[in-house]
């Protein structure tokens, strides 16, 4: 390839070849361009298709059940025509909140450790460990939760089963760690070194510098990491379903069987006939999840914009 570029060889190229080269057709390029573009557009079509396909049965449900009776109804009893999903929605929010309560501080500590305290050797252990944590299938999380965590809670709480939001919150809290830690670490590392040194030069301790300069400066990025963790937690299905106990009532405690939007969908998906109001209600719950997730993405985009503005400001 490189030989063609040298002047001498170019001169030596026989005229016939030169004509061929110059007259080369370029149609193949246009085809490829079209294919690349089509692939990109396919993403837009996919998300649109998902919204339509999930939305249609949901709208069919709202022809029969008023949206507010769906959203705020406290009783889920399809056999009696009651489609209130408040118990599931409350369960999802509570489980996600627990996950953030447990995974947030732990994850922030992990991110601070990785970004600011760990020696290169400790980092070489910690980083793959977090990747492994991300790679464990959610059913395995659920299985460990079911066979180790739930019995543990049962023994130490005196409750009958040990199922409930506490178990789900702990499992979810661990599951969101990888997402949260890697993004929060990026945010912490993005804080310019010169303001870190500026603080240390004032005679502050490492921790004072971390707590009063680095974390505040990285905060939008940490918040974005938290929101993405939240999105992961609220959409998680299998692990939660396995440790939650699956009772369709508004949870009254941390160690009582409860349900979430996701666990209820996976439980009833196979047992409700297509087109039935009960089946449509599952799609309406899916739509709710979809909208919450999309809302979180919009929130992340907003905080990220703030984050980049903040870093620019620091200069």
């Amino acid at each position: 390839m490189s030989r063609v570029s040298t002047g001498r060889t170019a001169v030596a190229t026989p005229a016939a070849v030169r004509t061929r080269i110059r007259g080369r057709r370029r149609d193949a390029g246009a085809i490829w361009r079209g294919l690349f573009f089509a692939s990109a557009i396919f993403l837009v079509i996919s998300i649109a298709a998902i919204m339509v396909m999930i939305g249609r049965p949901a709208i069919a449900l709202f022809a029969q059940v008023r949206p507010w009776a769906f959203l705020f109804g406290r009783v889920w009893a399809p056999e009696h025509g009651l489609y209130g999903v408040l118990p599931f929605f409350a369960g999802s929010l509570a489980a996600t909140g627990m996950a953030l309560l447990i995974g947030g501080p732990l994850g922030l500590a992990g991110a601070i450790y990785l970004a600011k305290l760990a020696t290169p050797r400790a980092q070489r252990v910690m980083r793959p460990a977090i990747q492994l944590l991300a790679g464990i299938p959610s059913v395995v999380y659920g299985w460990v939760g079911l066979t180790a965590l739930v019995p543990f809670i049962r023994r130490h709480s005196g409750h009958v089963t040990g199922f409930g939001l506490l178990a789900a919150g702990i499992v979810l809290g661990v599951m969101v760690l990888p997402t949260f830690i890697s993004l929060a670490e990026d945010a912490l590392r993005a804080v310019p070194q010169d303001i870190e040194h500026g603080s240390l030069a004032l005679g502050t301790t490492r921790w004072q510098t971390i707590a009063h300069v680095i974390i505040p400066a990285a905060w939008p990025g940490i918040a974005a990491a938290g929101i993405l963790g939240l999105a992961r937690a609220i959409g998680e299905t299998m692990a939660v379903q396995m440790v939650l106990g699956n009772s369709p009532v508004i949870p009254t405690g941390l160690i009582v069987p409860a349900s979430t939007l996701t666990s209820e969908i996976v439980l009833e998906m196979g047992s409700t006939p297509q087109g039935s109001p009960a089946n449509n209600a599952l799609f309406a719950m899916g739509l709710l999840l979809l909208l919450v997730s999309l809302g979180l993405i919009v929130a992340v985009r907003a905080t990220r914009r703030e984050a980049t503005a903040g870093v620019r400001e620091a200069h």
């Binding site: 310019p192 004032l202 505040p216 620091a314």
Partner: peptide
Amino acid sequence: GMVFQRPNPFP
């Protein structure tokens, strides 16, 4: 104390 080449105010 120290003052750096590039101004580095905290955000």
